Computed example of a mutant assay.
Amino acid sequence: MMATVAVVDVVVGPSMHFLPLVSLGPAFAPLVGGWRRTACVGGTALLLCVGLAWYDNLTDVRRGSMTFASVVGVTIAGLLAVSMRRKREAELDSVRSIAEAAQRVLLKPVPRLAGRLRAAVSYTSAVAEARIGGDLYEVVAASQGVRVIVGDVQGNGLEAVETAAVVLGAFREAALDEADLVRVGRRLERSVARQLDGEKFVTAILAEVSGHQATFLNFGHPAPMVIRSDGTMHLPEPPAYALPLGLGEHGPAEPEPFGTDFLPGDQLLLYTDGIIEARDADGRFYPLTERAYLLKEPDPEAALESLRQDLLQHVNGPLQDDAAMLLLRYR
């Protein structure tokens, strides 16, 4: 920037004075450098001012002196800005470390082995650099079988994270204590009803895999996807759709459980609407059912990553909503 000002000043000649623009160098230096770099840029600007002032015959002119003073003042201000920026960066690093600890407590890594099942999770936040948002998931190996939840909290931000913490806390306790999935759902409904006010809600699907049977409880959530060992796909649907968690008083008291066979070689994919509602540049939704073949990878984590990369390629940009996927297979 300063070199451009110097070249233009020399080319145009002493008739036009571009000397004051040299102060742009030390003005922008604090944005990309530290104290040393800012001081070096300020010193270079002063030397450049001396040379251009001599070339423009401004060494004895008041305007030249004011330019020197402005460069010194901007350099000092830049050094102060660097000090403030470093302090704020340190505070931000501290806040991030606390937030990451809270995130690890809220969305703990799911166990890779749960009973007779292998589990894998993929989570992509719509907020840059965030690891959690309004989507939630958990896998619990209980005596009755492996119990799973995938949900989506209405809204975003800290309020959504707080609600997700309530749902996950209630599920982790109920999954170990309650005898069946319906009672787990009742515990969740009571917890969410106490937490949420007005028309806020949480869509969720609960699953229990016991033996060679998968049982589901759907609270207004996208249907689970079962991929059979022969490559065929099945989307189990409930006999009657129930309202999301938090809206139980406006409809049926509780959803009806429904199930399907889940045999060795089959795969169960639970996901949030951030997957199926992701759009490309032409407004087309992501065709999840047509991409089920991407889950053929032997390693479940690699299979989910292939599906995630295909989703990002479909969107060709940042996601507009959080996207969570949870994959279950037999060992």
Rank of each mutant, 00 (worst) to 15 (best):
M2A: 12
A6S: 09
A6V: 08
V12T: 12
V12C: 06
G13D: 10
G13I: 11
P14A: 13
P14C: 00
H17Q: 12
L19V: 13
S23Q: 13
F28C: 08
A29L: 05
P30V: 08
R37M: 04
A39L: 15
T44K: 00
L46W: 02
D56M: 02
D60K: 05
V61E: 11
V61G: 00
S70A: 15
S70T: 13
G73Q: 05
V74L: 10
V74G: 06
A77E: 09
L80G: 09
L80P: 02
M84V: 07
L92R: 14
S97T: 14
I98E: 15
A102G: 06
Q103R: 09
Q103A: 13
Q103C: 02
L107D: 01
K108R: 15
V110K: 09
R112M: 10
R112H: 14
A114M: 10
G115K: 07
G115A: 12
L117P: 01
V121Q: 01
S122N: 08
V127Y: 03
D135T: 05
L136G: 01
Y137C: 13
V140M: 02
I149F: 02
I149W: 04
V150C: 06
Q154I: 04
G155V: 05
N156H: 15
G157Y: 03
A165H: 03
V166Q: 04
G169F: 01
F171E: 00
L176C: 06
L176F: 03
D180N: 13
V182Y: 02
V182H: 05
V182S: 13
R183P: 00
G185N: 08
R190L: 11
S191V: 04
S191L: 05
A193V: 05
K200M: 12
K200Q: 12
V202P: 00
I205W: 04
S210C: 11
T215G: 08
L217S: 06
N218P: 09
A223K: 12
M225V: 15
M225E: 05
M233P: 01
G248R: 05
E249K: 10
A253D: 14
E254R: 07
P255N: 01
F258W: 12
D261K: 05
D261A: 14
P264T: 10
G265C: 13
L269G: 08
T272E: 09
D273C: 08
G274A: 06
E277Q: 13
R279V: 08
A281R: 15
A281N: 06
D282V: 04
R284M: 07
F285P: 01
E290Y: 00
E297Q: 14
E301I: 01
A303F: 06
Q309Y: 02
D310E: 14
N316V: 04
P318M: 08
L319Q: 04
A323H: 00
A323M: 06
M325C: 15
